[in-house]
Design a protein around this nucleic acid. Structure first.
Length: 810
RNA sequence: GCGGGCGUAGCCGAAUUGGCACAGGCGCCAGACUUAGGAUCUGGUGGGUUCGCCCAAUGUGGGUUCGAGUCCCACCGCCCGCACCA
């Protein structure tokens, strides 16, 4: 009879909760394990793709618990954000009501899957109890000058009616809604993450249990480059501009200079020049162009300003151009152009007939085009003959001696734009006073609770601005009338520190107790999607370092180990509501139960890889669990009260080998092969049960007990029920993880392969401790080898005990 | 363009170190049970076979090696990241 998961599942879910099996407190006497999944946005919709992650995290919680760790596995909700707000605009329902309903739905789904968390520590970022500390954190950054407001050209999403951080712009489009972003000059709040750029880069080396590709992505994003910055004077007037270059060694090859169209000096240079009209048209066109068009690599175009620059190295005069291939936002927004050693400058010089001077000797036979490789410096006065590294040092020293420039490290990383013109986010705790400027809300007045509004739709500014009772306030410094900041914070601010709050979630006096954080941090296993490789994960590292510097957090890095799981793909696309290819779990729950779903999620493929959904897969794992059930209920064969046969002994050894295999596979995140190994063990038990002599009770009890324990974290409901029903104990989750007997794992006898010239010609059972000489002798005496050996002369015998002998003949 | 990864059966995949290629599952075929089967169970599932075995095979072509899915080179295809960053 098929097992009754519909009864078993609620029973055990209730017991885990009622007996508080997975609720924990800091205990310095026990090794801790802090297991966290990136807290989800409460969309309310959970499909098979989501369940994969939750299954992994729950498996780790249960496995590490059985391994003796004090495991903290909390859950929370990234519950501010646009979907709730957009739903509110559409329906008029308050985003809080909408969000809290979704949270309840998702929580029920997690419980239905059998996920166990310390729910006492549940947090939700939209609650004043949580966002109060967002605001507190903001004030701490503000005090230190790490939060500041400035007028800057920023990314504006016309669809969402809000600004976006650089990290949220993908290929020139809003990463949320795909709308092409526009540039706007706006006063916005920034976090000074660039102050931490070097540390964020260097400390990537500490993250040896992160995927390489995530580290590489962060490295690229931070984008460190070494070079020099120096001043270039404009001929015939007092103007000058700064340039940054990574190739100061090629300065003698500068044959023109380029300013970005938005560069502040441009106006002065073109006014009254013979190319003024042309230049103004070019600048206007560049401003009109979208980011995507600007970034599309194509023909290098530009306009001569009519002005000339003086090369500080040799005082030669070169033309100054405006060109949109130079970006205002990187470096100084102006470059020295050296076509001999730079492809872009070469393209531009060719187009406009500008002189090209090589300053690096290309290898003989090198044809055309800029030379980017190493070679002796030429045409460069006192640098001639040097290699590139020496020339760089020499020219930087030369510039520094004369006060013309200096060596510089440049980062691609920009400050983090954190203000948003939306309703459903944490209010920024700042008061704008006509007398005192930007004033911090006193800590005692936190939280700045965000008010109800009539209309959620953003219209260029935050909906909070439409609430006079909220906006109008007394300045805490001068007591005069003032106005509140109405922007809200990027939700990535919340997620940059939420995991710390899990350590002390109901603290109403401080953001957290540093002692509790010291016990639990760092997170031993962090699990989430690759899409956060440079967003959340970089911000969280930054904020952790800030809190470390404030003395609140001991660790410098929050996530000791990172696992990024693959997606579930169906019909060639990631499972998502918008693609219309989601597989909802409901049918599978009612037909096969939670354990079969979990097991298939584990089995579907290597956890790091995307996996293709298979409609029949859950049925397969269900069949497997049903076999396990029938074995436990004596429906699958015969258990006999007699001493173990040879076959039984082999099964016992196989069971111990499986313990080793499964333990090692879980430790290295190879859940798919761990499940396969358990299926293999089950098949082996069935073989013995169905054998003519039956399976001896002692071996059956041991092997089946091991199977249940190993399967426990994967398919917890059915295994807990079987554990209890077969009288093994009251709570499988609290049993210790099994250990394998090394003497059993090592086989007594192995099959030795005997090859002739690399082809398998015989297989011989030999003792696993066979000596090389014996192995060779056994192999050469093989009757099956005789005809081959007779046909030639033995040249060599390669022996790899105990697995293989290869006889080379000719 | 730069950087990284991948390519194994009809499908998903396994193969810690260079050492028996394809574990486990899906699908398919046959049989059992059955009023029935889209349930369940059993067996099979590259080709050939005198049933002992033999042969072929890890995208393509080369190389190193006694031995290559694994290492090296070139090519083909797919995926990911970065990309006018000076």
């Amino acid at each position: 009879m098929a097992y009754d998961f519909a009864t078993i599942e609620p029973k055990w879910q209730a017991r885990w909760a009622d007996e508080r099996v997975f609720n924990v407190t800091a205990d310095p006497d026990r090794p801790k394990f802090f297991n966290v999944q990136m807290y989800p946005y409460p969309s309310g919709e959970m499909h098979m793709g989501h369940l994969r992650n939750y299954t992994y995290v729950d498996l780790i919680t249960r496995y590490k618990t059985m391994r003796g760790f004090n495991v903290l596995s909390p859950m929370g909700w990234d519950s501010f954000g646009l979907p709730a707000e957009n739903a509110a605009i559409a329906s008029g329902i308050h985003p809080r009501i909408f969000t809290e309903e979704k949270i309840q739905t998702m929580k029920a789904q997690l419980k239905r899957l059998g996920g166990v968390y310390d729910w006492d520590r549940e947090i939700a970022s939209h609650t004043p109890e949580f966002y109060r500390w967002d605001q507190w954190l903001f004030l701490k950054l503000f005090e230190q000058g790490l939060a500041y407001k400035k007028l800057a050209p920023v990314n504006w999403c016309p669809q969402d009616q809000t600004v976006l951080a650089n990290e949220q712009v993908v290929d020139g489009a809003c990463e949320r809604c795909g709308t092409i972003v526009a540039k706007r000059d706006l006063e916005q709040w920034f976090f000074r993450i660039t102050d931490y750029g070097e540390r964020l880069l260097n400390d990537l080396a500490l993250l040896d249990r992160w995927p390489d590709r995530v580290r590489v992505m962060q490295e690229n994003w931070i984008g460190r480059s070494e070079g020099a910055q120096f001043t270039i004077k404009v001929a015939d007037n007092d103007l000058s501009f700064e340039v940054f270059t990574t190739r100061p060694d090629t300065v003698f090859g500068m044959t023109f200079a380029v300013l970005a169209p938005e560069h502040p000096l441009v106006e002065a240079l073109i006014t009254g020049s013979e190319t003024e009209t042309e230049a103004r048209e070019y600048i206007a066109a560049a401003r009109r162009a979208s980011e995507v068009e600007r970034l599309a690599e194509g023909a290098k175009t530009g306009v001569f300003t009519g002005a000339f620059a003086i090369n500080p190295a040799n005082n030669g005069q070169v033309p100054i151009y405006i060109a949109d291939y130079v970006l205002l936002s990187y470096g100084t927004g102006a470059i020295m152009a050296v076509p001999g050693q730079d492809q872009r400058d070469w393209d531009f010089a060719k187009r406009y007939g500008i002189e090209i001077i090589r300053t690096v000797e290309p290898p003989s036979g090198f044809e055309g085009e800029p030379y980017l490789g190493e070679g002796p410096v030429i045409n460069s006065d006192f640098l001639d003959g040097l290699d590139q590294a020496s020339a760089k040092k020499r020219i930087i020293a030369w510039l520094e001696e004369r006060g013309l420039g200096f060596g510089k490290v440049q980062y691609r990383l920009r400050d983090w734009l954190i203000s948003r013109q939306r309703y459903w986010g944490c209010p920024i705790p700042i008061i704008k006073c006509p007398t005192d400027g930007l004033v911090a809300v006193p800590e005692a007045d936190l939280p700045v609770v965000h008010p109800d509004v009539e209309n959620y739709a953003p219209e260029g500014e935050s909906p909070l601005a439409s609430v006079p009772e909220f906006v109008n306030v007394i300045c805490p410094v001068c007591g005069g009338p003032a106005e509140r900041e109405t922007d809200t914070m990027d939700t990535f601010v919340d997620s940059s520190w939420y995991y710390l709050r899990y350590c002390d979630s109901d603290n109403s006096e401080e953001i957290f107790d540093p002692a509790k954080v010291a016990y639990w941090m760092p997170i031993d296993q962090y699990v989430g999607g690759i899409e956060h490789a440079v967003l959340h994960l970089l911000y969280a590292r930054f904020i952790t370092k800030v809190l470390h510097d404030m003395g609140l957090v001991e660790v410098e890095e929050p996530f000791a180990a990172l696992f990024t799981q693959g997606m579930i793909v169906k019909d060639g696309a990631k499972m998502s509501k918008s693609k219309g290819n989601v597989v909802a779990p409901d049918d599978y729950y009612s037909r096969y139960g939670a354990d079969a779903i979990r097991l298939f999620e584990l089995f579907i493929g290597p956890p790091t890889d995307d996996a293709i959904w298979n409609d029949n897969g859950v049925e397969g794992t269900y069949r497997f669990l049903d076999r396990v059930w029938r074995i436990g209920h004596g429906e699958a064969g015969i258990v006999v009260d007699s001493p173990p046969s040879e076959g039984d002994q082999a099964l016992r050894a196989a069971a111990h080998r499986t313990v080793k295999k499964v333990t090692e596979d879980i430790d290295r995140f190879r859940f798919n092969t761990a499940v396969a190994a358990l299926m293999g063990l089950t098949n082996s038990i069935l073989d013995r049960l169905r054998s003519d002599e039956g399976l001896s009770r002692s071996v059956y009890d041991e092997a089946y007990g091991l199977l249940l324990k190993m399967l426990g974290p994967m398919a917890p409901h059915v295994t807990h029920e079987l554990w209890e029903q077969t009288g093994r104990g009251p709570m499988l989750a609290l049993e210790p993880w099994p250990v394998w007997d090394p003497s059993l794992v090592e086989l007594e006898e192995v099959t030795m392969v005997v090859q002739v010239n690399g082809k398998v010609r015989d297989r011989i059972q030999v003792p696993s401790r066979i000596s090389e000489a014996e192995a060779e002798s056994v192999a050469l005496n093989s009757a099956k080898l005789a005809p081959y050996l007779a046909a030639g002369t033995i040249r060599k015998v390669v022996v790899r005990t105990p697995n293989l002998v290869n006889v080379v003949i000719s």
